[in-house]
């Protein structure tokens, strides 16, 4: 434990400062309780998410390099992002900057032109969950828990990009064909096909995890949530029905995009009268916050469109 660092740069991403503020607020609570520290990355820009990379390669490199540069300027070599999309984008840029000299040089040149400090090294990005697990871990969560999540049957939903692809986040093996191999094993990473960090953290807080494979890493429709309703609806239906039929009374999430997509399609599926889709969703940090003794308002549970409050009340957790 303790390889990543206790004080890191915090890249919340656009979503966490808008509609998903519940994730931001609860993250800050959990981080404080676990004795860690996040240093807000002042004046960051959007990572380009899963959209910009489809229209521009260099553009997304620049967007992420600017954020990396801000982190270095504040003295950080580690960035933590709570969103699967943000951590993916930063890691993807990290991969290309590490493995392709030409990209690295070009990016630095362009940064200078745009009045941004060029990168003299490349900071590493970690997902919030990976950081919390490695720097605090289940033991610390257990110590802090004052209101165990007893009776809560959780389907732990990790989504796509927390574990995938390993090239960007774990190893640079077979790096893009420039003849140079730079394997880098990332010791802190979760298991890539059977992730368990969220399961263990919530179990440490007294919850019970239900069996949720393979839907725990099935896509929710992600970047196509708005542009491809048919596919997204089907994917979310599969996820929710598996959770419900495996006995979950709540879905724990760790990405604002997944969370929004699940909640939005859950409601639409319910309006259409589809069965077994009514499991509500909460960020794992909201659940940890409750376990640490915070109130429904503290962790902004009212913001959740799927309204998990009744379930939690019934179990005496909220």
């Amino acid at each position: 434990m303790g390889i990543i660092g206790k004080r890191v740069a915090y890249y919340p991403g656009c979503s966490l400062e808008g509609a998903s503020r519940a994730y931001d607020v609860s993250t800050r609570i959990v981080v404080k309780e676990l004795g860690l520290e996040l240093d807000y990355l002042e004046d960051y820009n959007c990572c380009g998410a899963m959209e910009s990379k489809n229209v521009t390669f260099m553009g997304t490199m620049l967007l992420n390099a600017r954020n990396m540069s801000l982190a270095l300027k504040r003295g950080h070599k580690v960035i933590v992002a709570p969103c699967n999309g943000c951590s993916f984008s930063l890691q993807r840029a990290e991969y290309f900057l590490e493995t392709d000299r030409k990209v690295f040089e070009k990016v630095n040149e362009l940064l200078k032109e745009g009045d941004v400090d060029p990168l003299d090294e490349i900071p590493h990005t970690y997902h919030l969950l990976e950081w919390l697990y490695n720097e605090a871990g289940p033991q610390k969560v257990k110590e802090r828990t004052v209101r165990p999540l007893k009776g809560l049957k959780v389907a732990n939903y990790y989504g796509c990009l927390y574990t995938r692809p390993h090239f960007y986040s774990r190893t640079y093996a077979h790096a893009g064909g420039n003849g140079e191999e730079r394997p880098r094993k990332r010791e802190t990473a979760d298991d890539d096909e059977h992730p368990f960090y969220m399961n263990e953290l919530l179990e440490a807080a007294g919850a019970e995890s239900v069996y949720f494979e393979p839907m725990h890493t099935q896509c929710c429709g992600g970047p196509h949530s708005l542009s491809d309703e048919d596919v997204s609806k089907k994917f979310v239906m599969m996820i929710l029905q598996t959770a419900k039929r495996n006995g979950a009374n709540i879905i724990a999430t760790e990405c604002p995009l997944c969370h929004a997509s699940l909640e939005m399609y859950r409601y639409r599926l319910m309006l259409e009268g589809i069965e077994d889709v009514d499991v509500p969703a909460a960020y794992f940090t909201q659940l940890l916050g409750l376990a640490f003794g915070y109130s429904v308002d503290d962790v902004k549970l009212k913001d959740n469109l799927s309204d998990p409050i009744p379930v939690l009340r019934r179990l005496g957790i909220a």
Partner: peptide, 28 residues
Amino acid sequence: PSKKFDQFFTESVLEYGRIEDGELLFGW
């Protein structure tokens, strides 16, 4: 469809540096 969305999204990033959920949702 997804091309239109990607374009819409990216142009908002370019303009403001940040995106805003309401604009994306209602604009879309």
